[in-house]
Design a protein around this nucleic acid. Structure first.
Lengths: 139, 139
DNA sequence: TTTGATGCAAATGTTTTGCATGCAA
DNA sequence: TTGCATGCAAAACATTTGCATCAAA
């Protein structure tokens, strides 16, 4: 919240996250930004990702899989994680933010928000699964 | 899914998780089990937590905060994470599992489940916050 | 016996941090 | 100038893994 100064590194990171819907990991962000700023350090990437997360300019996704992912889309939306290939994708669905009211009903604390992660098989893995079934059964 | 053999270590871990609703980290599980099995190793704890997660006997929570947490309560329920103190608690609320149908509506993959995490201020931190407000404003 | 499970320690992977220097305001 | 931001490297954590040994079936 204190006086923040402009930095090219932070600007590029934020811009990159706004431009993709691939929910990259810190390491992927690092690789991408290095194409533009070859001598950026991984520490700087982490520091900026954390700062942008704190200010709410980006979102950090802790959806399992060993490392966090980051999302430049801060409007309310929901994520799907494929349990086979690990891909994280946005879901096109209506708002379910009234679940916050359900949660608040019998709770004496303060609910400020929620994150919902959906799990299953992504379209691509589903297709592959079906193809394998066909080749095995010959149907 | 292969032939699994009994182990005292795994039995104790599962029993401990079933007995608490504190959503412990792997390290906390290690500390607790060591009270009963002093020479158990952290590797064994991780191996068993992973195996129990795979068989669905326990649940792994990736709710941010650096490390995963584990829950012996496998019946559908929801979690609240206090953004101030980090506590993870169960929420007493109605099922919202129809959100899976909302998610499936326009999705060509297969939705198999979901996890919802609620964030905010827990009752204890809320009380503290109010106490500080009173002492500052004198109201 | 056979084979899964363990303890130990080393290795891996992710994220944070200390510090001297650089750069925005 | 002031002090936030950086690059670099080391450190701190969290988790996994190789291997010889142990123990369940």
């Amino acid at each position: 919240m204190a006086g923040r100064k402009y930095s090219k590194q932070r600007a590029f990171i934020k811009q990159y996250l706004a431009s993709t819907s691939s929910h990259p990991t810190a390491d992927t962000v690092y690789d991408e930004i290095r194409k533009r700023i070859p001598n950026i350090s991984l520490g700087t990437v982490y520091r900026n990702l954390n700062q942008l997360t704190e200010t709410g300019e980006i979102i950090k996704l802790s959806c399992g899989g060993g490392c966090d992912r980051f999302d430049g889309n801060t409007s309310p939306h929901y994520h799907f994680i494929c349990t086979l290939c690990g891909t994280v994708m946005d879901l096109d669905m209506d708002s379910i933010d009234f679940v916050n009211k359900c949660a608040a009903k019998h709770f004496t604390g303060r609910i400020e928000g929620s994150q919902t992660y959906f799990y299953g098989t992504c379209p691509s893995c589903l297709f592959q699964e079906e193809a394998e079934l066909v080749s095995k059964t010959g149907l």
